Lab assay of single mutants.
Amino acid sequence: KLLSSIEQACDICRLKKLKCSKEKPKCAKCLKNNWECRYSPKTKRSPLTRAHLTEVESRLERLE
């Protein structure tokens, strides 16, 4: 599967780190437990900047 097509777990399953069936409108866990089942939009991760990478590398060197 391509990364862009990976389905996201519902908010509660993601928060509780449960295996989500990803069914809509309610996944199996939410249906069974009568929880409100919501699927928040995916958040875009910002790409690493060179400055951040350099900072992490220098912190790693100090720890070694």
Rank of each mutant, 00 (worst) to 15 (best):
E61L: 14
C37E: 02
V56T: 07
C10K: 09
E61C: 13
R59A: 11
L15G: 11
R14Y: 07
S40I: 03
L60D: 00
L18G: 15
C20P: 00
E57F: 08
K44Q: 15
R62A: 15
T54M: 08
K26Y: 15
K32Q: 13
I6L: 12
R45I: 02
W35P: 07
E57I: 01
E64R: 10
K44F: 08
C20N: 01
N34L: 13
R45M: 03
K42R: 13
H52I: 04
A28G: 12
S21F: 02
R62Y: 04
S21I: 02
T54C: 08
P47N: 00
I6Y: 11
S40G: 07
K19F: 01
R62K: 10
S4G: 07
K19R: 13
K26L: 15
L15P: 02
C30R: 04
K19N: 07
S5H: 11
R50H: 00
Y39E: 06
K44R: 11
C30G: 08
L31H: 14
L60H: 05
N33Y: 10
E7M: 09
K44S: 04
T43E: 15
S4W: 09
L53N: 02
L15M: 12
E61V: 15
S58E: 15
R50F: 01
C20M: 08
K22I: 00
C37M: 07
L63Y: 04
L31R: 15
A28L: 13
L2H: 14
K17S: 04
P47K: 07
K44D: 06
L53G: 00
L31D: 15
D11V: 11
R38I: 13
L3F: 13
R14A: 08
K29D: 07
Y39V: 09
T43V: 12
A51S: 08
A51Y: 09
L48P: 05
L63M: 13
C30H: 05
R45L: 02
R59M: 07
E64T: 13
S40M: 02
R59P: 02
R14I: 03
R14H: 00
L31Q: 12
T54I: 05
A28E: 13
I12V: 11
C10E: 13
S46A: 03
R59D: 00
L15A: 11
P25D: 03
L60T: 03
P41L: 04
K32H: 11
K1F: 15
S5V: 09
K32G: 10
N34H: 11
L60K: 10
S46H: 03
K16R: 04
K44A: 15
S4D: 14
L3A: 13
L63T: 01
Q8L: 12
R14F: 02
T43D: 09
T54W: 07
